[in-house]
Amino acid sequence: MTSPSASSRKTLSKIATNRLQKELMEWQVNPPTGFKHKVTDNLQRWVIEVNGAPGTLYANETFQLQVDFPEHYPMEAPQVIFIPPAPLHPHIYSNGHICLDILYDSWSPAMTVSSVCISILSMLSSSSTKQRPNDDERYVKNCRNGRSPKETRWWFHDDKV
């Protein structure tokens, strides 16, 4: 379920490698609050620990994000999913896929892993109910062959969580 699609497994381009090294250095000096990068020697897949923000529905809960970078990052968005168990949230499917526009159609190469993490945390923090999306069962069933969320034709829910 957490294996990325074949297309994102191509080795990183020179530009992508260079940029990720810079991002990693910046992260080490100045990590976003509530996140911890688990150190590996794999630049192409980052595993990041997320702590639910205090005072929100997810306070004291810890989740793991898996970020896979495509060959032409940052011209293409990274694939970002929660490693199950994923937080109970109206925009997060039980297989870890996240319905968030900036990860797909609204990606911009000026965004970074750090800014994506902050968006995800803010999505969690603004939630007022702990529940799965209505179509969770159907969606997860459709993804059983290991489909990447980047291949999903997302129909974005509204902003009010």
């Binding site: 530009i15 032409h72 011209m75 990606w107 911009s108 190469p109």
Partner: peptide, 18 residues
């Protein structure tokens, strides 16, 4: 070179202000 690549592959918008 990179902003030209972005305009061609991602979209015709400023990556920061959109």
């Amino acid at each position: 070179a990179v902003i030209l690549d972005h305009l061609e592959k991602v979209g015709k918008f400023d990556p920061i202000t959109r």
